[in-house]
Write a protein that binds this DNA or RNA. Structure first.
Length: 429
RNA sequence: GGAGAGGUGUCCGAGCGGUUGAAGGAACCGGUCUUGAAAACCGGCAGGUGAAUAGCCUCGCGGGUUCGAAUCCCGCCCUCUCCGCCA
C-alpha cells in the first residue's frame, strides 16, 4: 500500500510512477476525491463526538433536573447525528480502503523504464552452456524413461498439471530441498521456519495477493482459509502487527513449503513436464530490514539465490525487471533463470524483490529505530531460493548422459546417500 | 465436537456504567547517589489520525443498549483445563 500522504501531496509523482508501470494514472484523482470526502466526514464526526464527550462528562454533576434532562435530550440528538454520519463514513472508508489496496507499488528510481518483459535487462549471463555430443532430451522424456516422474498417474489422481515424483525422482527433490535449506541456514545466515500452508485472508492482503489476485488462489470456503501460493505469505506475516527493535534487523528467514496456484491465467501454457503445476515446492527467503539498507539487501538476496545455482553447477543468468514487468507489489525485482539444455530455454527459478514499505504498510510491520523513537514501517524483501520443479528440470536436462541416465551434481551427493547417478527403474546408483 | 475458565499497555495485574487511555508492580530509558556496580530515590515510558502539548479513535473482533461502556447485552475468534476423537 502506498502512503496516502504521498498521493495527496505528490499526485504527479505517483501518476508518473503508475504510467511507467503501464497502469492508469486516473486512479490517483479518484482516490484523492474520495480521501477529501472521507476526511471532511471524519472532521465533522470528531467535532460532534467531542461535544458529546464533554457534555456527557458534565451531566452527572448537574443538580438541576430540568437542565439535566435537556442536556441528555440534546446529546441523544448529537448521538443520532453521529450515527448517521458514521454510517456514511463506513461506506466511503470501505471504498477508499478497497481502492488503496488495489494501487500497485511504485517503481524504484533505479529501475529501467520499459513496456514489458522484452525490455528487461540481462545483467549477467553465463557464457558457457553445457555441450553435448548427442541431442539433449527434454526432461519429460528423460524422466518418463527413468520412471522418476509419473505424469499419467498424476493426472489420474488429481487432474491436469499434477504429477507424481517416484523413486530417485522423489529422493532427488527431497535432497535438493535439504541442500538449499542447509546452504541458506549455514552459509547465508537465515533462520529456518516451517509455516502453515493455509492462511487467513488478512495474511494475503498483507503480502498483496488479495484483493487483486484471488483468482490464482485456492480457497476453502467452509473454514475460510486460503492455500498459500508461496511461503512469502506466511513468513512475511510472521511479524504482522509487530513493532521490532532496530537491533533485531535484518530479520532473515528461509522456509520450505509446497505452493498452490490455480494458474487459470496460464491455461494452455507450459503444460508439458513439470514447469508449471498447481502444486509445487519452493524454498523461499524473506527479509525484514531497515529502509536505508533495503537496496543493498536486495543485492545480497540475489546473491544468496544465485549461490544455489553456482554450487549445483547449473548455468544461470540474471535479469533486472523493467518498469513494465514489475509485479504489483515490487519496487525493484531481479529474476534468476537457469538454462535447461533439453527444452533449450531459460527457466525462471527465483524472483527477488524489494517491496520497500509496501507490504509493511499492509501487514503493519514496523520497527523502532531507537528506544523512545516513533515506530516506522520497515522494508520487506523476498526471493525464491529456489523453486524446486525448475531446478529439477535444470538438473535433469543439463546433467543427462548419452545413455539416458542423469548424473547427480557433486554438491548434492552427500544429501543422497552418496549416490552419483539416476538410472532406469527410478534407481540411484 | 461437548463442558468450564479466561482474553486489559513490552510483561504481570487492578478496574466491572461517569475526568480510567486506563491504578499498582516489573522491565526499559534518563538522572541523583556511588571509585564502579547493585540498592534507594526522582523523572519518562501504548498505538493510530493530526501541524498540534488540541480534538477524535483503540482495553480480542464485530454489533447493540445508554447522554456516557474496558465495565451491561448478543454474535464470533483465540487461549487454558477436562471429556471425546485422532497422527
Amino acid at each position: 500500500m502506498l502512503d496516502i500522504r504521498l498521493i495527496r501531496e505528490n499526485p504527479n509523482l505517483v501518476k508518473q510512477g503508475l504510467s511507467a508501470l503501464g497502469e492508469d494514472p486516473a486512479m490517483v484523482d479518484n482516490l484523492i476525491s474520495i480521501d477529501v470526502k472521507r476526511r471532511e466526514l471524519m472532521t465533522e464526526i470528531d467535532v460532534l463526538r467531542a461535544e458529546r464527550n464533554t457534555v456527557s462528562k458534565e451531566i452527572p454533576r448537574i443538580k438541576e433536573p430540568g437542565e439535566k434532562k435537556a442536556k441528555i435530550a440534546a446529546m441523544r440528538e448529537v448521538g443520532d447525528k453521529v450515527s448517521a454520519l458514521e454510517a456514511e463514513l463506513v461506506s466511503i472508508a470501505q471504498s477508499f480502503d478497497e481502492q488503496m489496496l488495489r494501487v500497485p507499488n511504485l517503481p524504484h528510481p533505479s529501475v529501467p523504464i520499459g513496456k514489458d518483459d522484452t525490455e528487461n535487462v540481462v545483467t549477467y549471463q553465463q557464457q558457457e552452456l553445457p555441450q553435448f555430443d548427442f541431442e539433449p532430451k527434454p526432461h519429460w522424456e528423460l524422466a518418463e524413461k527413468l520412471g522418476i516422474i509419473d505424469f499419467e498417474r498424476g493426472v489420474k489422481i488429481s487432474g491436469s498439471r499434477f504429477y507424481v515424483l517416484r523413486g530417485a525422482g522423489a529422493a532427488l527433490q527431497r535432497a535438493v530441498i535439504n541442500f538449499m535449506l542447509t546452504l541458506h541456514t549455514t552459509q547465508h545466515g537465515y533462520t529456518e521456519l516451517y509455516p502453515p500452508y493455509m492462511v487467513k485472508q488478512e495474511a494475503l492482503v498483507g503480502t498483496g495477493n488479495l484483493p487483486k489476485f484471488g483468482d490464482n488462489l485456492y480457497h476453502d470456503a467452509e473454514e475460510d482459509l486460503w492455500w498459500i501460493p508461496t511461503a512469502e505469505v506466511p513468513v512475511t506475516n510472521f511479524h504482522r502487527d509487530e513493532i521490532l527493535d532496530a537491533s533485531e534487523l535484518p530479520v532473515k528467514y528461509v522456509a520450505y513449503t509446497a505452493c498452490f496456484r490455480r494458474e487459470k491465467m496460464s491455461a494452455g501454457r507450459d503444460v508439458r513436464g513439470i514447469k508449471r503445476g498447481h502444486q509445487f515446492d519452493k524454498v523461499e527467503m524473506v527479509k525484514l530490514v531497515t529502509p536505508e539498507t533495503s537496496v543493498e539487501e536486495l543485492d545480497k538476496l540475489v546473491n544468496d539465490a544465485i549461490d544455489v545455482a553456482k554450487v549445483l553447477g547449473l548455468p544461470y543468468r540474471l535479469l533486472q525487471m523493467c518498469t513494465g514487468d514489475l509485479s504489483f507489489t515490487a519496487a525493484m525485482k531481479y529474476d534468476v533463470e537457469l538454462w535447461a539444455a533439453g527444452c533449450a530455454e531459460w527457466l525462471e527459478v527465483s524472483s527477488c524483490s524489494n517491496f520497500m514499505d509496501f507490504q509493511a504498510r499492509r501487514a503493519n510491520i514496523r520497527y523502532r529505530a531507537e528506544a523512545g523513537a516513533k515506530p516506522e514501517y520497515l522494508h520487506t524483501l523476498n526471493g525464491s531460493g529456489l523453486a524446486l520443479p525448475r531446478v529439477m528440470i535444470a538438473i535433469m536436462e543439463n546433467y543427462q548422459q548419452a545413455d539416458g541416465s542423469i548424473l547427480i551434481p557433486e554438491s548434492l551427493r552427500p544429501f543422497l546417500g552418496g549416490f552419483s547417478r539416476i538410472v532406469e527403474g527410478a534407481k540411484l546408483e
